[in-house]
Amino acid sequence: MTPLEPRKCAPRGTWVLAALMLVGGACEEPSRSEEPACEGWRPGDLVITELLPNPEGTDTGQEWMELYNPGRTAVDLRGLMLYSARVDGTQERAYLFEESVPVAAKDYVVLGDVRAGELPVHVDHSYGDALRVLGNAGGVVGLRCAEVVVDEVRYSKSGRAGVSRGYDGRRVPDAFDNDAPDGWCDTPASSDGGVRASPGAPNAACPELSGADAGVSTGTCLSPRTGLSRSVSRPLPGDLVLTEVMADPKAVADAQGEWVEVYARRDVDLNGVTLANESGGRSVLDAPPRCLEMRAGSYAVLAHGDEPSLNGGLPPVLGTFGFGLSNTAGPHALRLSLEGAVLAEATWTGAAVPGVSRQWEGTRECLAPEGARHGTAGERGTPGQENLPCAP
Rank of each mutant, 00 (worst) to 15 (best):
G40S: 12
D76K: 02
T73P: 01
N54E: 12
D45C: 05
P36N: 15
M65N: 00
P53H: 06
L82R: 04
S84H: 04
L82P: 06
N69Y: 12
R78L: 10
D76T: 00
L80P: 06
Y83Q: 02
W64K: 05
W64Y: 04
W41T: 08
M81S: 08
D59W: 01
S33T: 15
G71C: 00
S31K: 14
P43T: 12
P36Y: 12
A85N: 02
P55W: 01
W41S: 06
A85T: 02
E63I: 11
P36H: 10
G61I: 09
E66T: 01
G57T: 09
R78W: 00
L67S: 00
P70M: 03
D76C: 06
P43H: 02
Y68H: 03
R72I: 08
L82A: 00
M65S: 04
M81C: 05
E66D: 06
N69V: 09
D59P: 04
P36D: 13
D45L: 08
L80E: 01
T60A: 14
Y83T: 08
L77S: 05
V87R: 01
S33A: 15
L51C: 11
E50V: 14
S31H: 12
I48K: 12
W41H: 03
E63A: 09
V47Y: 08
M65G: 08
P55L: 08
P53D: 08
P55Q: 03
G40K: 00
N54C: 12
D76F: 02
L46W: 02
M81W: 04
P36K: 12
P55K: 08
Y68W: 11
R32A: 14
Y68A: 03
L80Q: 04
G71K: 05
S33D: 15
E56L: 13
R32W: 15
G61D: 10
G61A: 11
P53T: 02
E34N: 15
D59F: 05
P55I: 06
S31P: 12
E39D: 15
A37Y: 13
T58Q: 09
E66S: 04
A85I: 02
L67P: 00
T58D: 03
T73K: 05
T60M: 12
E63C: 09
